[in-house]
Amino acid sequence: MSVLVVAEHDNSDIAPATLNTVTAAAEIGGDITVLVAGSGSAAAADAAAKIAGVSKVLHADSAEYANGLAENVAPLVVALAAGYSHVLAPATSFGKNVLPRAAALLDVQQISEISGVVDADTFVRPIYAGNAMATVKSSDAVKVITVRTTAFDAAASEGGSAAVEAADAKGDAGLSSYVGAELSSSERPELTSAKIVISGGRGMQNGENFAMLEEVADKLGAAVGASRAAVDAGFVPNDYQVGQTGKVVAPDLYIAVGISGAIQHLAGMKDSKVIVAINKDEEAPIFQVADYGLVADLFEAVPALSKELDG
């Protein structure tokens, strides 16, 4: 067996999600090759070569891979896939965009967002917002798989010494072009890999009130998230959303503030180790998954929490 991992990176660093995907590849078994497709991406390829357990890095460096456009990256993955039994990518907005396109070109039924490896052909994945877990077996010659990153530990980013080999670029498909991006910048940890997450919901009432959560987050070294309701209402940007169709998080501690707990939100956080819910409505479904529930007005409880953390 041999596994090709399509790396997510920003041309200089490897995204943490790639490290979780390498661990999923190791559970499948066999040699692990990491594909770094980028532009001016030598640093990212070198970083990939240092990941523990990786035996080879394929590095395709060309202008058409600068922004990870699916129309350009997918044909490259297809050209390389023939030598591998499995092709994996993280189930991030990058992997979800690129990998199904490659799977269709390979005439393979992709297995999305696996949370477990049973054997080389058989995988566990959540369906219905995680309200059911399906075990599925693939009969395709190559298995094309995206990986739920919270279900697998991160591989060590140091310790490996894989050889970096150049891969031929496939050219620009000429179907799409990158215009620009508005990325949220934050000094806080990244939401999907943070050890502690504090999220706000509709109960926060407006975006300004999220400053209360940020204050607590900074004392705990936490990331700040939100429910769909808070994002739809415009309190915070889309990249804060935790849930079935947003980000899936599984930190050591998840603090849900003013979040009622719709099943779509629970889908994104119920695998957290410890869940705290703060809500004034004692009937809120969030309390059914909480380890510690505090029935209180968040506008009193959150400032009190901030003060208590100083003590």
């Binding site: 393979v108 039924q109 297995i111 058989t122 959540p126 369906i127 995680g130 309200n131 059911a132 877990m133 399906a134 075990t135 599925v136 077996k137 693939s138 009969s139 395709d140 119920k270 869940i275 309390f287 998954v289 909480a290 380890d291 510690y292 529930g293 505090l294 029935v295 209180a296 409880a301 009190a304 929490l305 208590e308």
Partner: peptide, 24 residues
């Protein structure tokens, strides 16, 4: 279909938590 569904199960249940009286 290309995939065979071997089984569909309930996810692991979380154990019931406790209600705390206050922030402290």
């Amino acid at each position: 279909p290309r995939l065979e569904t071997l089984k569909v199960e309930e996810p692991a249940k979380r154990e019931a938590g406790v209600t705390v009286a206050d922030v402290a």
